[in-house]
């Protein structure tokens, strides 16, 4: 999908942006249908996860255990609705299965489970343990002289309150595991409020640098920036890399953006100040996404 031709690259990015926009619509629909789940982080991560599956990762939906694949883990497993939608788009399972999210006997469990859905590399939800697993995988790749493979792990910013992450950060730096590429979803919210109110993380760049990591900061809602940052990360070989991806929680839906109340809630569940009545929330959100905030007129309108 990537190309050295500048024009092709621009076209490719536009195509990815359209995919991410469709992904957001399916996140809204599947969460509304589920009646519970995490909206804000899922929407905010749509660009990063789309870029990963459609450009960055070496993977094969028809052979999820391909032994040359890159590894991708979502340490903040509560944002898995975005991963499910992108996996369906990438061909891991039929899109219609998205409507089983969080339902009895579904492969799309409320939090991701490795043994339930092929293509998931781990089970997550309890926070703070993705980075350690990534380090273990990366160390094994090194032991096996398995190069040109990378382990990508997305962590929430609120998740960084967990001590396990910092144990893993020390470890990954000690062993100079440059095949680990951490991506922190810096959306500034967690359940009880903003990260800086609940438990301040800043100076976040300085913290990672002090732990021995190479830090890249980007606009995490800019697909081209995500792709470029990962390419840069793969070129760094002396230390592990963390990409602090600044994202807007609820990205793409005006009444959700920046509002931590949408961290753990789907549309249609409750009336929220500043948002449409609950019965209209899905419709308003989907219309906004479909028309790209009125910038395009949908053919159906």
């Amino acid at each position: 999908m990537s190309s050295n031709n500048f024009t092709d690259k621009k076209l490719a990015i536009e195509k990815l942006e359209l995919i991410a926009n469709d992904v957001r619509q399916d996140i809204i629909k599947s969460l509304e249908n589920a009646g519970s789940g995490h909206s804000a982080g899922s929407l905010g991560l749509a660009d990063i996860v789309t870029a990963l599956y459609f450009d960055i990762l070496k993977h094969d939906p028809n052979n999820p255990t391909w032994d040359e694949r890159d590894i991708f883990m979502l340490s903040n497993g509560h944002c898995v609705p975005v991963q499910y939608v992108v996996m369906a788009y990438a061909g891991y399972f039929p899109k219609k299965e998205l409507m089983t999210l969080r339902k009895f006997k579904s492969r799309l469990q409320g939090h991701p489970e490795r043994l339930v859905l092929p293509g998931l590399e781990t089970t997550s939800g309890p926070l703070g343990s993705g980075l350690g697993q990534a380090a273990g995988m990366a160390l094994t790749m090194r032991m096996n002289k398995d190069s040109h493979r990378w382990v990508y792990v997305i962590m929430g910013d609120g998740e960084l309150d967990e001590g396990n992450n910092w144990e893993s950060a020390l470890f990954t730096a000690k062993y100079k595991l440059h095949n680990v590429i951490g991506i922190v979803d810096r959306n500034n919210i967690q359940i009880d409020g903003t990260t800086e109110h609940v438990m301040p993380l800043e100076d976040l760049r300085a913290k990672w640098e002090a732990f021995g990591w190479h830090v890249i900061e980007i606009d995490g809602n800019d697909i081209e920036a995500v792709i470029d940052a990962c390419a840069m990360a793969r070129a760094i070989v002396e230390k592990p890399i963390v990409i602090i991806a600044h994202t807007v929680p609820g990205k793409g839906v005006d009444f959700m953006e920046y509002d931590y109340h949408w961290h753990g809630m789907p549309v249609g569940l409750a009336d929220v100040g500043g948002a449409p009545p609950k019965n209209d929330q899905a419709m308003v959100a989907l219309k906004e996404l479909r028309t790209l905030r009125g910038r395009i007129k949908n053919e159906h309108e």
Partner: peptide, 20 residues
């Protein structure tokens, strides 16, 4: 792994995932 038992088992999980 140093004095870090949570990290010890998560690293081990990752290693087992790759066949160790």
């Amino acid at each position: 792994v140093g004095i870090a038992e949570q990290n010890m088992v998560t690293v081990a999980s990752g290693m087992a995932s790759m066949g160790k």
